[in-house]
Amino acid sequence: MRPFTYLSAPDVTTALRAIATEPGARLLAGGTNLVDLMRQDVERPTTVVDISTLPLDEVQELPAGGLRIGALVRNSRLAAHPAVRSRYPVLSQAVLSGASGQLRNMATVGGNLLQRTRCPYFADGTAACNKRDPGSGCAAIGGFHRGSAVLGTSEHCIATHPSDMAVALVALDAVVEVQSLRGTRRIPLAELHVLPGDTPDVETALDPDELVTAVELPALPVAASSRYRKVRDRASFAFALVSVAAAMEVADGTVTAARLALGGVAARPWRAHLAERALVGAPATEEDFRRAATAELATAVGRPQNAFKIELARRTVVATLHQLTTEGGAA
């Protein structure tokens, strides 16, 4: 690990000032991703700004019926929160399916959203990676890419975003609250992460001086009937090959509302708008679920090792929606 200056921020303004003035500053919250990457010499901060003691760790009810989740709320607490469990079960399930108990005790909501890809070439300093070293190429294309993305990829990068939590949040229309010395703004979570295009090193819509301070969930009755499904190589402690966050309401055999997102398939938690449009108003049958999933995956590009993910995603969508029609989704 390279030497760096450590700054423990006593308040939000100090943290904002540090990241606004120092280009090499990185924010430290739970440290579950940043510290690993510093050890691997992928992250090389000149200053580490420790924000873990800032008062951003509350879960609050919003006047309109939603929840405001502070960026420093630990994953464990989020998953266990009674309001999350009863009104947004998909979120609780998604968080609990990620990492280990120890990691969830440390990891924060903001850190989870901003965690970096687990593409092995990103962490391997000797390999080509446009995300780590722009212009060096993509070793995953033509290399090992079994875990890589199938949606929204480019010829420059096929990395995935590894979060489970973010997949549930994006399905729930979450909005991210961001602060800088210039003020506060709100970004729909669906727009927080950007697709690689020809600048895979640009991963989010955040400016370098911005700090995620909270995530807001709107009141969303359909979310009470929601589920998270995750397909992975072992029963625990593994990233998703494919995951699905879904919420759906059915009346008289017809889908009246649907929220659907996919994980493990793209550089961002993938909100499946095309599938949602196909679902709403259609009969709640497996055939229609499959048609909706196929519509979403029509633009998917599989490569020799990861093409299986496309059919795996389709099957997982169908199974999750089928489960919601047969047993509802209350946690």
Binding site: P120, A123, A127, G143, F144, D233, R234, A235, S236, F237
Partner: peptide
């Protein structure tokens, strides 16, 4: 069902217990 050191062009792709999976108590 899970353990493999992935080697491509002579390079190890998964030198960590995040990427080299071994059975847990749940498996």
């Amino acid at each position: 069902v899970m353990e493999e050191i992935l080697v491509r062009d002579g390079r190890v792709q998964n030198p960590s217990f995040t990427d080299y999976l071994i059975p847990t108590v749940l498996d």
